[in-house]
Computed example of a mutant assay.
Amino acid sequence: MVSTPAPRPVDLSDPIYTIETVAALLHVSIDTARQYSYRADFPAARELGARLLWDREELLAWFRALPRRTAADRRRAAAPEAPAPAVADGTLARPYRRRGSATRAA
C-alpha cells in the first residue's frame, strides 16, 4: 500500500517558494505544479544550485490574472453537445448514413 505524505504547512509570508510550496499553495500535487511550471504564462523560476525557486509576488500575480469561472461556466462546460442543426427544409445538416451502405467499386 502506498501512503501519501502529510501536507506540510505553508508559510504564505515566505517570499521565496520551492516546488513543494507552490504545490501546497495551489492545492495540487507536486507533479501538477511542475507541469504548471512548463506553461508559457507561469512565472519563471530562479535557479539556486539545483533548486528552482519562485517569487511569491510573481506567483500571486499570475494566480490573480487567471480567468474566473462561475458556476454557469462549469455547467456549460459539462453540458452535452447539441444535436446537429436542422436546415430550413427540416432535414439534418449532415445526412444519416447506415453502416455498410457505402457503394463499393466492383
Score class of each variant (00 low, 15 high):
Glu81Tyr: 07
Tyr96Glu: 03
Arg75Met: 14
Tyr17Arg: 13
Leu92Gln: 08
Pro9Ser: 10
Ala88Tyr: 04
Arg94His: 11
Arg76Met: 09
Thr4His: 02
Tyr17Ala: 08
Glu81Met: 08
Leu60Gln: 10
Ala24His: 06
Trp62Asp: 05
Ser3Asp: 12
Gly100Asp: 04
Ala105Lys: 10
Arg46Glu: 11
Arg104Asp: 07
Leu59Thr: 06
Ile30Tyr: 00
Thr18Glu: 05
Glu81Trp: 02
Thr4Asp: 13
Ser37Pro: 01
Ala40Trp: 00
Pro9Cys: 00
Pro83Trp: 06
Asp73Ser: 11
Glu20Ser: 13
Val87Met: 14
Tyr36Glu: 02
Pro15Gln: 03
Gly90Trp: 03
Leu25Met: 14
Arg74Gln: 14
Leu52Arg: 15
Thr18Met: 01
Ala72Arg: 15
Thr18Phe: 03
Glu47Ala: 13
Ala105Thr: 11
Leu48Glu: 05
Ala23His: 08
Ala44Asn: 07
Glu57Val: 04
Pro9Lys: 13
Asp11Thr: 09
Pro85His: 06
Arg51Phe: 08
Leu52Val: 00
Ala44Tyr: 01
Leu48Ile: 09
Glu47Tyr: 02
Ser37Phe: 05
Ala61Phe: 00
Ala6Gln: 11
Pro83Gln: 02
Arg97Ala: 10
Val22Thr: 08
Leu59Gln: 00
Ala72Gln: 15
Pro15Asp: 04
Thr18Ser: 15
Leu53Met: 12
Asp11Met: 07
Ala23Met: 06
Ala78Glu: 14
Tyr38His: 14
Ala102Pro: 00
Leu48Ala: 14
